[in-house]
Simulated assay, not measured.
Amino acid sequence: MELGTSESSYPGSGNWEIPIDLFGSKKHAGVSRGVLTFADEFGNIVFRVNRHPPSPNLLPLPEDKKLLLDASGNPLFSIHRYHNGSWKCYKGDNDGNNELVFRVKRTLKTLTRVELEVHFHGERSNDEGCDLKMKGSPFRRSCSIYKDADLVAQSSLMYKLHQIYASRGKFRLTIFPGTIDHALIVALFVIFLSGRK
């Protein structure tokens, strides 16, 4: 799969020259409490994450399924988490019948740190190497996504000046200029947040 942008029309689907900030929260006006949303700097929802019950005819049965939706509610990615600490992401809303975009496997899990490897479908003929790496602490909402040695995206809690404790309820996801689709980065970050489970 090429890492280029998709032809979708949601904000962030183009090739930008400057870093883009998205603000994640489970408390956003007009959205049910507990639904994770990603908004732009003006407070407009760009992406939304919904929990979705997995289909019983999908084997092996995922432990958890989430849908990444655009601002209009159109499904972009279906994220499936399995019992063995791996994830698969498909295009659109499906039960594994559509195009596999990438798979993720956990390579390190400690009390404070998680590392994940991302393998795009069709990029390599074997399991040698990975396409992206994610490292950080899901509890602190701190994640760095790398392509080789290049930083692709980074997240952090929203600290204010002279603030000792920052709420984990709101965080910033900065996506650096490049050719990786912003929706794909958000899907990876959603996977990272559940990486400690």
Score class of each variant (00 low, 15 high):
residue 4 G to M: 02
residue 166 A to W: 06
residue 190 V to C: 02
residue 164 I to G: 11
residue 47 F to H: 06
residue 176 F to L: 14
residue 124 R to P: 12
residue 89 C to K: 01
residue 72 S to R: 12
residue 36 L to A: 12
residue 43 G to N: 10
residue 94 N to K: 07
residue 77 F to A: 01
residue 22 L to P: 06
residue 134 M to L: 15
residue 34 G to F: 13
residue 11 P to S: 14
residue 20 I to V: 13
residue 143 C to A: 12
residue 113 R to S: 15
residue 184 L to F: 01
residue 147 K to Q: 14
residue 74 N to P: 00
residue 117 E to W: 04
residue 15 N to I: 15
residue 23 F to T: 09
residue 60 P to E: 03
residue 177 P to T: 07
residue 73 G to Y: 09
residue 48 R to Q: 08
residue 30 G to D: 07
residue 26 K to A: 07
residue 129 G to K: 07
residue 80 H to Q: 07
residue 44 N to E: 12
residue 24 G to K: 06
residue 71 A to W: 06
residue 8 S to G: 12
residue 123 E to S: 14
residue 158 M to V: 05
residue 144 S to Q: 13
residue 59 L to D: 08
residue 112 T to I: 14
residue 17 E to W: 14
residue 135 K to R: 11
residue 84 N to P: 00
residue 147 K to P: 00
residue 146 Y to H: 13
residue 93 D to V: 01
residue 65 K to E: 05
residue 91 K to M: 08
residue 117 E to N: 13
residue 192 F to W: 11
residue 82 Y to P: 02
residue 80 H to L: 08
residue 67 L to A: 08
residue 116 L to Q: 13
residue 104 V to T: 09
residue 104 V to M: 05
residue 29 A to C: 12
residue 176 F to D: 05
residue 150 D to R: 15
residue 122 G to C: 10
residue 138 P to Q: 10
residue 102 F to N: 08
residue 5 T to C: 01
residue 177 P to C: 08
residue 22 L to E: 00
residue 179 T to P: 01
residue 58 L to H: 13
residue 118 V to R: 05
residue 179 T to E: 11
residue 186 V to D: 00
residue 132 L to T: 08
residue 30 G to W: 11
residue 161 L to E: 11
residue 24 G to R: 02
residue 39 A to C: 14
residue 97 N to V: 08
residue 132 L to V: 05
residue 194 S to D: 13
residue 140 R to E: 12
residue 65 K to A: 01
residue 62 P to T: 03
residue 141 R to K: 15
residue 142 S to E: 11
residue 68 L to C: 01
residue 112 T to V: 13
residue 105 K to I: 11
residue 16 W to F: 15
residue 169 G to S: 08
residue 155 S to N: 06
residue 170 K to D: 06
residue 132 L to G: 06
residue 70 D to R: 02
residue 161 L to T: 15
residue 197 K to V: 09
residue 19 P to W: 12
residue 66 K to W: 01
residue 192 F to S: 04
residue 99 E to F: 05
residue 129 G to I: 12
residue 49 V to I: 15
residue 70 D to A: 03
residue 194 S to I: 05
residue 42 F to K: 15
residue 69 L to W: 03
residue 193 L to T: 15
residue 192 F to C: 09
residue 47 F to V: 02
residue 130 C to L: 03
residue 83 H to M: 02
residue 44 N to F: 12
residue 36 L to F: 06
residue 100 L to T: 04
residue 101 V to S: 00
residue 75 P to S: 14
residue 165 Y to M: 13
residue 18 I to L: 11
residue 157 L to N: 00
residue 193 L to R: 13
residue 20 I to L: 09
residue 9 S to K: 12
residue 189 F to P: 02
residue 120 F to A: 04
residue 74 N to F: 09
residue 177 P to R: 14
residue 78 S to L: 00
residue 94 N to S: 15
residue 149 A to E: 10
residue 14 G to R: 02
residue 193 L to I: 09
residue 136 G to I: 11
residue 6 S to D: 02
residue 151 L to M: 06
residue 151 L to D: 01
residue 22 L to D: 07
residue 107 T to E: 11
residue 184 L to I: 03
residue 70 D to M: 01
residue 113 R to K: 15
residue 135 K to G: 04
residue 66 K to Q: 10
residue 178 G to W: 09
residue 126 N to Y: 10
residue 149 A to H: 03
residue 48 R to D: 00
residue 186 V to H: 00
residue 1 M to C: 06
residue 152 V to D: 01
residue 16 W to P: 04
residue 132 L to N: 01
residue 121 H to D: 14
residue 191 I to G: 06
residue 15 N to L: 10
residue 94 N to W: 10
residue 77 F to I: 01
